[in-house]
Every structure is written in structure tokens, then in C-alpha cells.
Design a protein around this nucleic acid. Structure first.
Lengths: 248, 248
DNA sequence: GACCAACGTTCCGCCATATGGAACGAACAA
DNA sequence: TTGTTCGTTCCATATGGCGGAACGTTGGTC
């Protein structure tokens, strides 16, 4: 059912880029502008999208869309409840921003963010997707994935986010081995040009790395040594969250 | 685009009733079973639904669905943040369950629930929709709606939830007048046969009643007099939440 | 064990309807 | 003014969604 595929793709795109207009949607999806326009009218008639409150020319998701799939968040809600208090501890002891993300196929999505004492210039917005291979969040999960899934995450052409982003398959695999050994992952200017991060994977009851937490900060405030020093802290926090999931 | 409408309707239905199978979906939407089946296959291929983890024969929404529209929750997230601490206060002072809901067209959806000291036998699940006219949550919002919207909410045939549900238009309007005057709404066995409730509306920055909080409890523990006595408490709490929204 | 109801699934011919290139007026920048 | 990009409308084409009918399977009942 082609129209349904188009509609779902457009809904997801609006979720990532709202507010957004017809032409941009057509460009990003590869659909003809006519088709995109028709789909938008349909979504609007169904009440899933509406003209943006501030930018009336473009489209945003409506509350109805949120309510329709709200129950799908039961899983992330449990995770959220287990992780939040521990993330607060991490934020208080380090003073830096703490992130919580889940994996979906070969991307990750940010579920929660606690801002540090000095708020970041470009805070990563909630629900925004990001690459697995360039973030400490993503690499901590990749390191513990089974080979088949790892393959499906890495066989595409990996986007280069900054000059430091590792896009070479062998280099990434080598780093994942280090990550696997020490339990935490790092990202030094690999996702944003002036930001370092350190992250650790959270495991569900079957032991799969379905989520991750990380600390991220500007390079001039937190250098690579500091990230590595914080590593064990994150490993311990992630383990406590994982335990909270299996019990709860 | 008929297929898109069907797909969105089915997604919303699964969100309300998951896990659910093809036949039940076909019944509830009025679609032929063949069409429902085809839509489900399409949604599955797109990754929005998956066979339920416990009940493999039926379908549930996937995490991908939640992530796709996650950003639509920005609005409810702000509300949630403003309401949560005040709801906790209410729960602690009364010891009963506290609810937070938003309105969508002529229904309401539960966004947050804090269980009281004695958990209810049939707790209302999060994200579950309910009727406006039979709940204190709904009536508190209806009372402050502008006439046009009120009309669109009440002109359909109002479902009778219990023997005490008021479905007569004149009776409802009369009660809304009382509600408007005193600032809070009540529901005595009108939504569940053995439950009383009292609620107050939360207003957004434009003064519109977009959400509501309520306290609900079994009739043998909380009688009608107790609900009315708690009324001013809820009005004060709702006002504080409203102020938190306009400032935040 | 035999029956029946309800389930999920597959098949197939018909024709409704999604498609997308082309052209339009409006808004904006250079 | 000119050129670009925006959102929108039109229309002939043929793609692909439609739904009745029939299938195999499961689970409950007598």
C-alpha cells in the first residue's frame, strides 16, 4: 500500500523536522511535490498534523498524533522511570548534561536530557535521532550487539558528522572491541565539532543493549582524560538502571 | 486517500486496545477483514506495529511508532512537568489517586496517574480515552468551553457508562452551570458504577481549558460530601498548574 | 471424537483512485 | 523588473487497492 508507506514516512519526517513545508518534505522523501501535498491534506483531515502555531505556513504534528500512539510509550516509560533518578545523580556529581537514548534499527533517538550547570550552546533536542557510530551513546550499544544486528547497523555508508567522525569500518570495529572490554564508549568531537562524550549501555531483561546513557560537554570544559575518568561512573549507573528494569 | 485514513484509524485503535487481532479491528472500524489485514501487513512492514510480545497472535504498537511521533509530546511534556509535583502534593494530602488528562475533540485521554495509598481495583490505564460527559475531568473542561466547541462535544449521542450517567442534554447543561459557578466538577458513579470523582480544569496561556486534574476513589471510601469538600483543593491546584504553564 | 464457530490468510477480477508531469498565482530576494 | 521558490490545481493514465468468497487451523462445547 504505497500511500500508507508515504504517509508514515511523512509523519516520521515531520516528527523529526517540524515545522516543515511541502517542498522540503517532497525533497527529503523523494516523492513528487503533488503526492506529498496530497498526503499532507489527508493527514490534516485526519487531525494528525496541523499548521504550526508559530509558523503557520508549515506543518507540525498535533496532539492527536501523540495520543494515538501514546500507549506505545509504555516501554520507554518504564525505562524512563528507572533511569531518571540515577541520571539526576550523575548530573549532580558531574555537573554536566546527561542523556538517555534508545536504539531503533540503525539510528538512536534521544528520550531524556538533563541539562548541566552550564547549559550547552546547541542542546540536542529530545526525540531527535542521531547516528550510532558517531556518538558514545550509539557506540556503547553497538559494542554489545550480536554480530548479525551489528552488521545491519554498519553495512550502510556511515555519515561523516565532523572531521573526527570515524567512518572506516575497521577503525570502528577496533574501537568497539576496546569499548566492549572496558564497558564504556567515548566520542571525541565525532558528532559535533566541539563536544566530547562518554556513554554506557543499558540492558533489558534479556541482556540486549536497548538503551544507553551518556555525559556530554564542550571540549574546553571536559577533555578526553576526564571522559575516560568518568567511564566507570557511567558503567555503574547503567548497570543500576538495567537492574531496575529487570526487577521492576 | 482512503488507505491512509484506514491506516491511521487502525493505528489509533491499536493504541487503545493493544494487543488486538485482525477480526476485532475489522469489526471496530467497519472495514472488511481483507482490507484490515492488508493494512496491518503494511504497518508491520513499516515497523509501526509488531506481534505482541506476550500474545503473539495479536498486534501492538512498536517503539518506532512512539519515536516517530515523540516530538508531538513536547506540548504534553510541558504540562506534565508543571502538573506532576502538584499532583504529588494532592495525592499525599488526600491519600487517593490523582489523574491528569487532556481533551482531544469530544474525548479525553489520560496522561498521568498517581495511585493512592489503597490502589484501585480497576485503575484507569494511561493513554486510555474516556468520555467527557461522564467524568469529573471531562465536565470540568466542558464547563469552560466556548459555546461552539461545547456544541460539537455534546451533539452526538452520549454513551451511557453506568446507570447514573447523565445523557440528557438539559441535565448536563444544568450541571455545567453549577460547575462553572463553583470551579470544580464532580462525577458520582457516572463513569464506573462504584467510583466518585472531583476535578478541576487547567487553562493554557490563552485561558482555554485544555487539560484537567481529578481525584477518584471507590464510593465506600470517598462519598459525595468528601468530593465536594475536596473541590476547593483541586481548584487551587489546577490554578497553580495553569500559572506554571503560562510562566514556563 | 465430532461438531461448530471464529480466527487469520489467500485468491482474483473489477474499477475506483492514486499518480506525477505541467502549469498556475503569490511571495520574496536580488 | 527579473528570477527563484513557495503552495496549489488540473487531468489523462494505468496502477494497485478493493472486497466477496473460499481456504486451512485453532479452540471450545456437547
Amino acid at each position: 500500500m504505497r500511500p500508507v508507506h508515504s504517509a508514515l514516512e511523512i509523519v516520521a519526517l515531520i516528527g523529526q523536522r517540524q515545522p516543515i513545508g511541502v517542498s522540503a518534505i517532497a525533497r527529503d522523501t523523494g516523492l513528487p511535490k503533488t503526492t506529498a501535498h496530497r498526503v499532507l491534506q489527508t493527514l490534516h483531515a485526519a487531525g494528525w498534523i496541523e499548521p504550526d502555531a508559530n509558523d503557520g505556513a508549515n506543518w507540525s504534528l498535533s496532539i492527536r498524533a501523540a495520543l494515538a500512539v501514546g500507549s506505545a510509550q509504555r516501554s520507554t516509560r518504564q525505562l524512563h522511570g528507572a533511569a531518571f533518578p540515577i541520571m539526576e545523580e550523575l548530573r549532580n556529581t558531574t555537573g554536566e548534561s546527561v542523556y538517555l537514548a534508545v536504539r531503533d534499527a540503525d539510528t538512536l533517538a534521544l528520550i531524556e536530557r538533563l541539562d548541566g550547570r552550564n547549559p550547552l550552546a546547541h542542546a540536542w533536542p529530545l526525540w531527535q535521532r542521531g547516528p550510532l557510530h558517531a556518538t558514545s551513546l550509539g557506540k556503547s550499544m553497538l559494542a554489545h550487539l550480536d554480530p548479525a544486528e551489528l552488521e545491519s547497523c554498519l553495512n550502510a555508508t556511515l555519515p561523516r558528522m565532523t572531521r573526527q567522525t570515524k567512518t572506516d569500518r575497521a577503525a570502528i570495529e577496533a574501537e568497539l572491541a576496546v569499548t566492549r572490554a572496558r564497558g564504556f564508549a567515548t566520542s571525541f568531537r565525532e558528532n559535533w565539532p566541539n563536544e566530547n562524550g562518554v556513554g554506557a549501555a543499558i540492558r533489558n531483561s534479556r541482556g540486549e543493549p536497548t538503551a544507553a546513557i551518556s555525559i556530554s560537554a564542550p571540549v574546553d570544559r571536559v577533555d578526553e582524560a576526564q571522559c575516560i575518568a568518568w567511564g566507570p561512573l557511567l558503567v555503574a549507573a547503567a548497570r543500576r538502571i538495567s537492574l531496575g528494569l529487570t526487577r521492576g
